[in-house]
Design a protein around this nucleic acid. Structure first.
Lengths: 152, 152
DNA sequence: AACATAGTATAAATAAATTAGTAGGATTAA
DNA sequence: TTAATCCTACTAATTTATTTATACTATGTT
C-alpha cells in the first residue's frame, strides 16, 4: 500500500500558507511576486499548490473580476496546534505531558531559557480560561481540523 | 524541483523504529513476525525500510550467521526531540516558548490536565541539571542528529 | 476584428515513500 | 549430490508531492 495523502501541511503547502497568513487574501500572481528571492516559482506551480490547500480546507477563494483571490480559512495558531497534536500522537503516545517534558529536557536548552519558560508557563497558566468544548477531545487527526473549521 | 528526501522519520520508518526500540536487536524475519495483526508486511518490504533507516543513521546491523541483526543507534528520546525541533522550526520560528504556549493554550485541554502539567513542569525544572554542551546549539536539522550519533 | 494580455484548467514529468516480486547465494536436509 | 530452505540484493509498481509547460478563455487594445 503506497503512501497515504498527507493530512498535515507539506513543505510547499506550509510555505504558501505562511505567505497567506502574513498577506491575507491574495491573488495567485501576487503570491508569485511575493516569493522570496532565489526560490521563485512558476505561476502554475503556486496555483496547483493553492488548489490542494483548498481541497484540504486550509484556504478558500472568491472571484474578483477574472482572478481568484485566495484567503486562509485556518489560522496559523490552529494549523500549528493540529501539527503539534499530530506529532504528539506519533511520538508521545498522545500525552501532552510527555511532549512537554521532552521539550524541557532537551540538552541544548540553557538555564536562562529554562527560567524564561518557567515564568512564561506560570503566567500563561493563569490566563488560560478553561472554557473547552466537550466534543472530540481525543483525536487531533484530520477530524480535529475539520471540526474546527466549522467553529471558525 | 521534486520533493527532497525526508530528514525526519516517515510513517513506515517510525513504525519499524518503535518495534526496534521495544524489541532491541532484531532480525528482519523477527520484525516481520512481530508485525501487528492486520498490518502484516512482506519480508522484502521490511528489509527495504530498515535499509533506508540504516542509510539515515537510525539503525546499524551486524551479521550473525547468515542473517543481519538490526539494532537502533538513535534512542527514542533523541529521535523524538529531533522531531520536536523540526516542527519548532517549521511552525514556531524555532522558539521553544511559542511551542510551549501553543501546547498549553490548546482549547481541548481540560483544567485538571493543565494543573497536572504545571506540577510536572515545576518538578521537572528543578531536576534538570543545566549541564549542556556548547556545540551546535541552534540547528536541530539533520546535523543535530548526526552530531548526536557521534556522542552516543 | 485581430491581437496581445492575464488568468484558470489540464496534463505531465520527476523524485520520494511504500510495498512487494523475483533472482541468487549459502546452509541444511534427504 | 540434489533439493529445500532461508536470507539478502535487485527490480519494479503504485501513490503522493513538487514543479512546470501547454492549452484554453476572457478581457482589453489597436
Amino acid at each position: 500500500m503506497p503512501p497515504r495523502k498527507s493530512i498535515t501541511l507539506t513543505e510547499a503547502e506550509l510555505r504558501l500558507m505562511k505567505m497567506l497568513w502574513v498577506r491575507g487574501e491574495s491573488a495567485v500572481s501576487e503570491l508569485v511576486a511575493a516569493m522570496p528571492e532565489g526560490e521563485a516559482l512558476a505561476y502554475t506551480s503556486v496555483l496547483t499548490t493553492v488548489r490542494i490547500l483548498e481541497q484540504k480546507g486550509y484556504v478558500r477563494h472568491r472571484q474578483e473580476g477574472r482572478a481568484f483571490l485566495y484567503s486562509p480559512c485556518v489560522e496559523e495558531q490552529e494549523a500549528s496546534r493540529s501539527e503539534v497534536r499530530h506529532m504528539m500522537q506519533r511520538f508521545f503516545g498522545n500525552s501532552r505531558e510527555r511532549l512537554l517534558l521532552s521539550l524541557l529536557g532537551d540538552d541544548e536548552i540553557d538555564p536562562e531559557e529554562l527560567q524564561r519558560l518557567k515564568e512564561a508557563i506560570a503566567s500563561a497558566a493563569d490566563d488560560l480560561n478553561p472554557t473547552h468544548g466537550d466534543d472530540a477531545a481525543v483525536n487531533g487527526a484530520p477530524g480535529g481540523l475539520a471540526a474546527r473549521k466549522v467553529a471558525l
